[in-house]
Design a protein around this nucleic acid. Structure first.
Length: 220
DNA sequence: TAGGCCATCTGGTCCT
DNA sequence: AGGACCAGATGGCCTA
């Protein structure tokens, strides 16, 4: 789903932004949630008398009466135009920023172990999944290290090590799970949303969703 | 049809 | 002053 390019709303907004100031002053975009721009312009429209009949004498009188009003109007016009221009540029940057953010999220998705036919992870799911996955990987490393340390003390325990210590393939969920849902629910189960894996080894029973499903015994 | 997710706009704040 | 970041608002799309 990518409504960012073909969304009619966006197209309308784009066209609103591309409008000349004269047009914008007489048109209030139906799509704009924040009417600040059009509101300001309709109230202080620099072209308020643009289409009125111009009496040369009246014009002369106005000239004599004072350039101050005229320049003030022009100044307001310039300020409004400048403000609008800044807004458009800021919107553009913000859009870009969000696109970059989404690209990063896509990169993250691509390295997470999911089944191809699975629905695309949502943003929040991706973050939670990645969080748990990283934690599971580091936990695996830690346990492997622990086993090697023990190996130094008890040479004969080498034979007792589960084969999985040397065969762990966390990038391949199918190696141990019968279904994608089982694999994924283990990685971003609601448990992990409540208790952080950083909570420490004390509450492994509840905060290790990955290992609950992928205990070493399963790999042997 | 309600609710979830998403993209975009917007104004505010902070930083350079 | 201008850019980056953020959070709220809004509206569209999709699905149960």
């Amino acid at each position: 789903m990518s409504p960012k390019t073909d969304c009619p709303l966006n197209q309308r907004r784009e066209s609103c932004c591309e409008m000349s100031d004269g047009e914008a002053s007489s048109f209030s975009p139906p799509c704009s949630p924040a009417p600040s721009l059009s509101h300001t312009e309709s109230e202080e429209c620099p072209f308020g008398d643009r289409f009125a009949f111009q009496d040369p004498r009246e014009t002369q009188r106005k000239k004599l009466k004072g350039n101050r009003t005229r320049s003030k109007t022009r100044n307001e016009f310039t300020v409004t135009k400048q403000r609008k221009n800044r807004r458009v540029k800021a919107n553009d940057r913000e859009r870009n920023r969000m696109h970059n953010l989404n690209s990063a999220l896509d990169s993250l998705r691509s390295v997470l172990p999911t089944f191809p036919d699975d629905a695309k992870l949502t943003k929040i799911e991706t973050l939670r999944f990645a969080h748990n996955y990283i934690w599971a990987l580091s936990e695996t490393l830690r346990m492997a290290d622990q086993s090697l340390i023990n190996l130094g003390h008890h040479q004969d325990s080498f034979q007792n090590l589960p084969k999985s210590c040397f065969m762990l393939d966390l990038t391949s969920p199918s190696s141990s799970c019968s279904s994608s849902s089982e694999w994924e629910s283990s990685l971003y189960s609601p448990v992990s949303q409540i208790s952080s894996p950083m909570a420490g080894p004390g509450n492994e029973a509840t905060s290790l969703p990955f290992l609950r499903h992928h205990s070493y015994s399963q790999f042997v």
